[in-house]
Nucleic acid binder design. Structure first.
Lengths: 117, 117
DNA sequence: CGCTTGCTTAAGCATGTGCTTTAGTATTCA
DNA sequence: TGAATACTAAAGCACATGCTTAAGCAAGCG
């Protein structure tokens, strides 16, 4: 396919997997090493590392290696664009109802008027 | 794989594609038919229909057929769990800093001993 | 009626994803 | 030093995804 993915693609894609969301939830409570993150899961450590690579590629997680230990932490700023995209959708949608309300208020089937906020 | 996907999996997965996000953005401005939704894209109509199926499976979009025309609309309630998950992550993360701040306030400069608690 | 419209279904294909196992490479410690 | 620890890299496999084309079918229209 060869097309470069947008940031939002990577973030939503990263969060679409329950293992990765569990990792993010764990990291929300503080940094952790790779093997600490892998412990709760039955899958191999290599598989968890691959999930971490997806999370790092999306920017949700950063890590640094000290000695032989890699410590991972959440980069909560990376979640903001996704959160905002969702909020914007809802805002647009609700705004639509506001306009619909106005339209209905200006074209009355019934006399009362002060009902719309 | 045979494991049933959770709602959040389906929603995030659905939003991980730019075509599908564009469709959701379009539907945010009001309902539309399948061919109206397909028009902006260079891909085949069948491909757009498949994207719509993903969106419907996630609950983000509903549709009903009248005559030979299928009209799609956004189901903004389906976005809420995703929005809340993201907000919760940020909340947990920020709360962590609050607690850290408290800790640092009550334990002024102490000689460090262990590296990790 | 036959023709166009608006999907719908199915098959097929290239690429991506989520694992596995195996085989490394640095560190750290007894 | 030599063994355990903590990853890291790579290959391989089953299944999912994002398209395509082709064929079909039920409205609606002239």
């Amino acid at each position: 396919m060869l097309k470069q993915a947008e940031p939002l693609d990577l973030v939503f894609q990263a969060l679409a997997d329950p293992t990765r969301r569990a990792i993010v939830e764990r990291l929300g409570r503080g940094p952790a090493t790779v093997s600490e993150l892998a412990m709760p899961f039955t899958m191999s450590l290599a598989a968890v590392v691959q999930h971490l690579q997806v999370l790092e590629a999306s920017g949700i997680v950063t890590s640094e290696k000290t000695g032989r230990v890699r410590t991972c932490r959440i980069e909560s700023a990376a979640l903001k664009p996704a959160e905002r995209w969702l909020a914007d959708r809802r805002a647009t949608w609700e705004h639509r109802f506001d306009r619909l309300g106005e339209l209905l208020a200006t074209q009355p089937t019934d006399p009362p008027k002060g009902t719309t906020p």
